[in-house]
Simulated assay, not measured.
Amino acid sequence: MTAPRLGLLLDVDGPIASPVTRTIAIPSIVHDLVALAAEGIPIVFNTGRSDAFIRSEVVAPLLAGGLAEGGRVHAVCEKGAVWCSIGPQYEGGMGELTVAEDLALPRDYADEMRELVRAEYADLVFFDETKRAMVSIEQRVEVPNATYLERQPEFDAKAMGALVRRGLGVRRLDDVRPAADGSVAWRIDPTIISTDVESDRSGKDLGAERSLELLAADGELPVAWRTMGDSRSDYAMADWLHANGHDVAHVDVRPADGVPATSYPVLTAPEGVIHDEAGARFLRDWTRAA
């Protein structure tokens, strides 16, 4: 069996789904993902989103767009805590879910965050009831992003306080490394449209590791990789692949945050082309290169 020319690890919000509509708003994205899968290109959606979101906003459009059986398409959700395979051979387009229960927050913490949203922030955000391990609070689509970002730190401080009050191990918001001693700890990860509360072992690097485990079970690993995301934390996918000896380049669809120094190439779209518009351009290029 010939190894695929390329493998894709794709963040969803930003490069695939519009951060405004939270849907795949550019039709060519679906067309090109279906075409790449038909060619045998492995595709893994490595995302903080829930499996329910992926089912409705990614898998459903792919099935409607003609995704065929036999494609090597998978989803790693909640930053490595939930994973499954994707294809029309599965009911609803998604295979059996695996959930890493050791990455799940205590239920009473989730209950407190749900009540906090209801009592103080219902005009700004909603509590994501579809998450199985992490806790996510997301900006309402009708709320201006600037309004959300202005109030986000206030909510994040209360979320952190609830962790501390329970005596749970807590890491700094900007410390994305797991605890050196292997102990369980939790962190707050703010994004441009949400706040995630998660295990410090979760992350796009864990998602990359899960992705290769899924792909190793269904065929040859690709010759080269492209990872794609819209935030600095998405670089962890390429970091992990590079550290484990894989040829990789990372696509940053929102480089305004600053492109860090890396040991691998970083690709960006022309100035002013960001998010799913940038993602669509790269997918089209990779499809045409077949």
Rank of each mutant, 00 (worst) to 15 (best):
E138V: 14
V135G: 01
I137Q: 06
S183K: 09
R151L: 13
D175G: 01
L149K: 11
R132W: 06
F126K: 04
W186N: 04
A185W: 06
R172D: 14
R166G: 02
I137Y: 02
K158S: 09
R177C: 01
V125N: 01
V170I: 10
S136I: 08
R132A: 14
E129M: 12
D181H: 07
V141K: 14
A133K: 04
F126T: 08
K158T: 11
R177Y: 08
S136M: 13
D181T: 06
A180K: 08
R172A: 15
N145L: 14
F155E: 00
R171E: 08
M134C: 11
A122I: 01
R165T: 11
R172Y: 08
L173M: 14
P178N: 00
R172W: 08
I137A: 06
M134W: 01
S183Y: 01
A157Q: 12
K158I: 12
R171L: 08
D128I: 03
L163C: 02
V176R: 15
V164R: 13
D123Q: 05
E129R: 15
T147R: 14
V143K: 05
A185V: 05
F127L: 05
R165A: 15
E129W: 11
Q139M: 15
V184C: 06
L168I: 01
D175T: 03
A180D: 12
E138G: 10
S136R: 11
T130Y: 10
A180R: 11
A179I: 00
G182A: 03
L163Y: 06
V164P: 00
E138W: 07
F126Q: 05
A162I: 09
R177Q: 11
A146K: 12
A146R: 14
E154G: 09
R165L: 08
V141W: 07
V164H: 07
L124N: 05
Q139A: 15
A122W: 04
A146F: 12
D174G: 00
D123M: 01
V125E: 02
G182H: 05
S183A: 13
L124F: 04
F155K: 03
R177S: 10
V184Q: 14
V141N: 09
S136D: 04
D181V: 07
R166T: 04
V176G: 01
R132F: 04
V143A: 04
P144S: 07
S183T: 13
T147H: 09
L168P: 00
P178G: 00
S183M: 02
K158L: 15
G182R: 07
D174K: 02
K158H: 11
L168D: 03
E142A: 10
V141Q: 13
V135Q: 03
D181N: 11
L163R: 04
L124T: 08
D174W: 08
P153L: 08
L124K: 05
